[in-house]
Amino acid sequence: MLVGKGALSFRAFQVNGKGSVPTTERLLGRLDQFAFAGIDTVEEGHQHGWIAPDHLFDGDFHAAKVYRGQYAVFALRIDTRKVRGPVLAAHTAIAIQDVLDAEGLERLSGRRKREIKQEVKRELLAETPPVQRAYGVFWNVRSRRVYLQSTSKTVIEAFRTLFERTFELTAEPAMPGVRAAAFAHEKGRLEALKDARPLILNLTKPGVREPELATV
């Protein structure tokens, strides 16, 4: 099970938009439509999509599996294919030396070296398996809160983009500043928030400078 495995680390998001409580049919159908499709090229980069909660190759979005109590559970799979810089540099140096030896040359032009490097990279990518990662998602559909089991910026960005494309809903992260702005707005304390400056506790050096902040 990819969701809820081990100690939980997660980012919370508020789900907003028209139809922010999707029906079971819509939720499952959209997951299926944006399911992980695999890396089918040998280009460097990432590929991501949804998978069902059991394991990395689980593409079976059945209600009995996805719906657990008040939650819809599934996972974001991100595959990454990349050749590490030092490995590429080493293979390129060997390939250049082979060409020099074979053609009896002392040096190659910059253009030829770039061509060799690109060819070496293509070959290495073709034999490099992608790194496969999955991040659990649990969505309290009725209360419009979704949780991603990652706090990595890259993963969060991939999640938000895919979630918004998939469900045509926004997933707003509940960051401290955003929550403070919402709280201040609700309580009529926006001016106080605008005037708020970082707490200076310094007992040893009174009068240290205060930071400049935006006052939008």
């Binding site: 707003e172 960051m175 401290p176 500043g177 955003v178 403070a180 702005a181 928030l193 605008k194 708020a196 970082p198 707490l199 506790l201 902040l213 935006a214 939008v216």
Partner: peptide
């Protein structure tokens, strides 16, 4: 959220460490 609002909110993120303290 508008970009100006987002910048405003991000600049108030210091509230989180004040909260912990």
């Amino acid at each position: 959220m508008a970009l100006d609002d987002l910048a405003f909110a991000i600049e108030r993120s210091f509230l989180a460490s004040e909260f912990l303290t």
